[in-house]
Amino acid sequence: MDWILNNPETLWEALVQHVIIVAEALAISLAIALPLGIWSARRPRVYALVLGATGILYTIPALALFALLIPIMGLGQGPALTAIVMYSLLVLTRNVVVGLRNVPGDILEAADGMGYGRWRRLGAIELPLALPVIIAGIRLTVVTQISVATVGAFIGAGGLGDIIFQGITQDIGDKVVVGAVFASALAILADESLRFIETRVRAAGGLE
Protein backbone atom coordinates (compact mmCIF):
# COMPACT_ATOMS: atom_id res chain seq x y z
CA MET A 1 0.00 0.00 0.00
CA ASP A 2 2.94 2.30 -0.59
CA TRP A 3 1.00 4.11 -3.26
CA ILE A 4 -1.61 5.46 -0.79
CA LEU A 5 1.06 6.73 1.61
CA ASN A 6 2.87 8.54 -1.17
CA ASN A 7 -0.19 9.96 -2.90
CA PRO A 8 -2.89 10.78 -0.31
CA GLU A 9 -3.83 14.00 -2.09
CA THR A 10 -4.34 12.36 -5.49
CA LEU A 11 -6.61 9.81 -3.90
CA TRP A 12 -8.54 12.45 -1.96
CA GLU A 13 -9.04 14.55 -5.08
CA ALA A 14 -10.28 11.54 -7.04
CA LEU A 15 -12.69 10.64 -4.25
CA VAL A 16 -14.09 14.19 -4.06
CA GLN A 17 -14.38 14.32 -7.84
CA HIS A 18 -16.24 11.02 -7.83
CA VAL A 19 -18.70 12.23 -5.19
CA ILE A 20 -19.29 15.47 -7.10
CA ILE A 21 -20.02 13.66 -10.37
CA VAL A 22 -22.49 11.39 -8.63
CA ALA A 23 -24.14 14.30 -6.80
CA GLU A 24 -24.54 16.24 -10.05
CA ALA A 25 -25.84 13.19 -11.88
CA LEU A 26 -28.33 12.50 -9.09
CA ALA A 27 -29.59 16.10 -9.11
CA ILE A 28 -30.09 16.07 -12.88
CA SER A 29 -31.68 12.61 -12.86
CA LEU A 30 -34.14 13.63 -10.15
CA ALA A 31 -34.99 16.82 -12.02
CA ILE A 32 -35.96 14.65 -14.99
CA ALA A 33 -37.38 11.54 -13.28
CA LEU A 34 -39.63 13.31 -10.74
CA PRO A 35 -41.72 15.26 -13.27
CA LEU A 36 -41.61 12.31 -15.68
CA GLY A 37 -42.85 9.95 -12.97
CA ILE A 38 -45.54 12.35 -11.76
CA TRP A 39 -46.70 12.86 -15.33
CA SER A 40 -46.80 9.18 -16.26
CA ALA A 41 -48.05 7.73 -12.95
CA ARG A 42 -51.72 8.00 -13.92
CA ARG A 43 -51.17 7.52 -17.68
CA PRO A 44 -50.53 3.80 -18.33
CA ARG A 45 -49.67 4.26 -22.02
CA VAL A 46 -47.16 7.03 -21.38
CA TYR A 47 -45.68 4.97 -18.55
CA ALA A 48 -45.27 1.92 -20.82
CA LEU A 49 -43.37 4.07 -23.32
CA VAL A 50 -41.19 5.62 -20.61
CA LEU A 51 -40.39 2.17 -19.16
CA GLY A 52 -39.51 0.80 -22.61
CA ALA A 53 -37.20 3.68 -23.52
CA THR A 54 -35.43 3.98 -20.15
CA GLY A 55 -35.24 0.17 -19.95
CA ILE A 56 -33.26 0.00 -23.19
CA LEU A 57 -30.86 2.66 -21.90
CA TYR A 58 -30.46 0.70 -18.68
CA THR A 59 -29.57 -2.52 -20.54
CA ILE A 60 -26.79 -1.00 -22.68
CA PRO A 61 -23.40 -1.76 -21.05
CA ALA A 62 -21.83 1.33 -19.48
CA LEU A 63 -18.66 1.27 -21.57
CA ALA A 64 -20.74 0.98 -24.77
CA LEU A 65 -22.94 3.92 -23.80
CA PHE A 66 -19.86 6.06 -23.13
CA ALA A 67 -18.35 4.98 -26.45
CA LEU A 68 -21.54 5.76 -28.36
CA LEU A 69 -21.58 9.30 -26.95
CA ILE A 70 -18.02 10.06 -28.12
CA PRO A 71 -18.89 10.80 -31.77
CA ILE A 72 -21.72 13.07 -30.61
CA MET A 73 -20.34 14.77 -27.51
CA GLY A 74 -16.62 14.01 -27.51
CA LEU A 75 -14.74 13.37 -24.27
CA GLY A 76 -14.95 14.84 -20.76
CA GLN A 77 -17.41 15.34 -17.95
CA GLY A 78 -20.32 16.46 -20.14
CA PRO A 79 -20.80 13.17 -21.98
CA ALA A 80 -19.93 11.23 -18.81
CA LEU A 81 -22.69 13.00 -16.87
CA THR A 82 -25.10 12.47 -19.76
CA ALA A 83 -24.45 8.73 -19.80
CA ILE A 84 -24.76 8.40 -16.02
CA VAL A 85 -28.07 10.28 -16.10
CA MET A 86 -29.35 8.07 -18.95
CA TYR A 87 -28.61 5.06 -16.75
CA SER A 88 -30.46 6.44 -13.76
CA LEU A 89 -33.80 7.24 -15.38
CA LEU A 90 -35.32 3.72 -15.36
CA VAL A 91 -35.03 3.01 -11.64
CA LEU A 92 -35.83 6.55 -10.49
CA THR A 93 -38.88 7.06 -12.70
CA ARG A 94 -40.18 3.58 -11.94
CA ASN A 95 -39.92 4.12 -8.19
CA VAL A 96 -41.61 7.53 -8.38
CA VAL A 97 -44.49 5.91 -10.30
CA VAL A 98 -44.73 2.86 -8.03
CA GLY A 99 -44.60 5.11 -4.94
CA LEU A 100 -47.37 7.35 -6.23
CA ARG A 101 -49.50 4.42 -7.36
CA ASN A 102 -49.16 2.78 -3.94
CA VAL A 103 -50.97 5.65 -2.21
CA PRO A 104 -54.32 4.07 -1.26
CA GLY A 105 -57.37 5.26 -3.18
CA ASP A 106 -59.40 6.15 -0.10
CA ILE A 107 -56.69 8.55 1.04
CA LEU A 108 -56.77 10.32 -2.31
CA GLU A 109 -60.55 10.41 -2.26
CA ALA A 110 -60.56 11.85 1.25
CA ALA A 111 -58.02 14.49 0.19
CA ASP A 112 -60.12 15.45 -2.84
CA GLY A 113 -63.30 15.49 -0.81
CA MET A 114 -61.66 17.76 1.73
CA GLY A 115 -60.76 20.34 -0.87
CA TYR A 116 -57.11 19.79 -1.65
CA GLY A 117 -56.26 21.18 -5.08
CA ARG A 118 -54.31 18.96 -7.45
CA TRP A 119 -50.83 20.30 -6.70
CA ARG A 120 -51.44 20.72 -3.02
CA ARG A 121 -52.59 17.11 -2.82
CA LEU A 122 -49.41 16.06 -4.63
CA GLY A 123 -47.15 18.03 -2.28
CA ALA A 124 -48.91 17.41 1.04
CA ILE A 125 -50.24 13.87 0.61
CA GLU A 126 -48.97 11.92 -2.40
CA LEU A 127 -45.24 12.71 -2.45
CA PRO A 128 -44.77 12.33 1.34
CA LEU A 129 -46.48 8.93 1.20
CA ALA A 130 -44.44 7.88 -1.85
CA LEU A 131 -41.18 9.05 -0.24
CA PRO A 132 -39.94 5.70 1.13
CA VAL A 133 -40.24 4.07 -2.31
CA ILE A 134 -38.63 7.09 -3.97
CA ILE A 135 -35.72 6.96 -1.52
CA ALA A 136 -35.31 3.23 -2.20
CA GLY A 137 -35.01 4.21 -5.88
CA ILE A 138 -32.46 6.89 -5.04
CA ARG A 139 -30.41 4.32 -3.08
CA LEU A 140 -30.32 1.89 -6.00
CA THR A 141 -29.58 4.75 -8.40
CA VAL A 142 -26.70 6.17 -6.37
CA VAL A 143 -25.05 2.72 -6.18
CA THR A 144 -25.41 2.35 -9.95
CA GLN A 145 -24.11 5.87 -10.52
CA ILE A 146 -20.99 5.26 -8.43
CA SER A 147 -20.32 2.14 -10.51
CA VAL A 148 -20.97 3.79 -13.87
CA ALA A 149 -18.95 6.87 -12.90
CA THR A 150 -15.96 4.57 -12.28
CA VAL A 151 -16.13 3.43 -15.91
CA GLY A 152 -16.69 7.08 -16.91
CA ALA A 153 -13.01 7.75 -16.28
CA PHE A 154 -12.49 5.98 -19.60
CA ILE A 155 -13.85 9.04 -21.42
CA GLY A 156 -12.28 11.58 -19.08
CA ALA A 157 -14.80 11.94 -16.26
CA GLY A 158 -12.07 11.71 -13.64
CA GLY A 159 -12.80 10.28 -10.21
CA LEU A 160 -11.74 6.97 -8.69
CA GLY A 161 -11.94 5.22 -12.07
CA ASP A 162 -9.02 7.43 -13.11
CA ILE A 163 -6.87 5.92 -10.38
CA ILE A 164 -7.79 2.42 -11.60
CA PHE A 165 -7.11 3.14 -15.29
CA GLN A 166 -3.83 4.93 -14.48
CA GLY A 167 -2.77 2.00 -12.33
CA ILE A 168 -3.49 -0.39 -15.21
CA THR A 169 -1.53 1.67 -17.76
CA GLN A 170 1.34 2.35 -15.37
CA ASP A 171 1.23 -1.29 -14.22
CA ILE A 172 1.03 -0.34 -10.54
CA GLY A 173 -1.02 -3.11 -8.89
CA ASP A 174 -1.39 -1.22 -5.58
CA LYS A 175 -2.86 1.78 -7.32
CA VAL A 176 -5.45 -0.34 -9.15
CA VAL A 177 -6.49 -2.07 -5.95
CA VAL A 178 -6.68 1.18 -3.97
CA GLY A 179 -8.93 2.73 -6.63
CA ALA A 180 -11.13 -0.36 -6.68
CA VAL A 181 -11.33 -0.63 -2.87
CA PHE A 182 -12.23 3.04 -2.47
CA ALA A 183 -14.88 2.87 -5.20
CA SER A 184 -16.39 -0.22 -3.54
CA ALA A 185 -16.27 1.35 -0.08
CA LEU A 186 -17.96 4.48 -1.40
CA ALA A 187 -20.75 2.38 -2.96
CA ILE A 188 -21.30 0.31 0.19
CA LEU A 189 -21.23 3.41 2.41
CA ALA A 190 -23.77 5.18 0.18
CA ASP A 191 -25.97 2.08 0.12
CA GLU A 192 -25.95 1.70 3.89
CA SER A 193 -26.55 5.38 4.68
CA LEU A 194 -29.44 5.62 2.25
CA ARG A 195 -30.87 2.38 3.59
CA PHE A 196 -30.77 3.91 7.07
CA ILE A 197 -32.58 7.03 5.84
CA GLU A 198 -35.10 4.87 4.00
CA THR A 199 -35.92 2.92 7.17
CA ARG A 200 -36.33 6.12 9.19
CA VAL A 201 -38.59 7.71 6.59
CA ARG A 202 -40.65 4.55 6.31
CA ALA A 203 -41.15 4.45 10.07
CA ALA A 204 -42.10 8.13 10.14
CA GLY A 205 -44.47 7.69 7.22
CA GLY A 206 -47.01 5.74 9.26
CA LEU A 207 -48.02 3.41 6.41
CA GLU A 208 -48.20 -0.21 7.55
Partner: peptide
Protein backbone atom coordinates in the same frame (compact mmCIF):
# COMPACT_ATOMS: atom_id res chain seq x y z
CA UNK B 1 -65.99 7.68 3.38
CA UNK B 2 -66.02 4.00 4.23
CA UNK B 3 -62.26 3.58 4.16
CA UNK B 4 -62.01 6.76 6.29
CA UNK B 5 -58.87 7.75 4.37
CA UNK B 6 -56.99 9.25 7.30
CA UNK B 7 -53.60 10.58 6.23
CA UNK B 8 -51.21 8.01 7.71
CA UNK B 9 -48.20 10.34 7.79
CA UNK B 10 -50.01 12.96 9.86
Amino acid sequence: IQGVGLFPHK
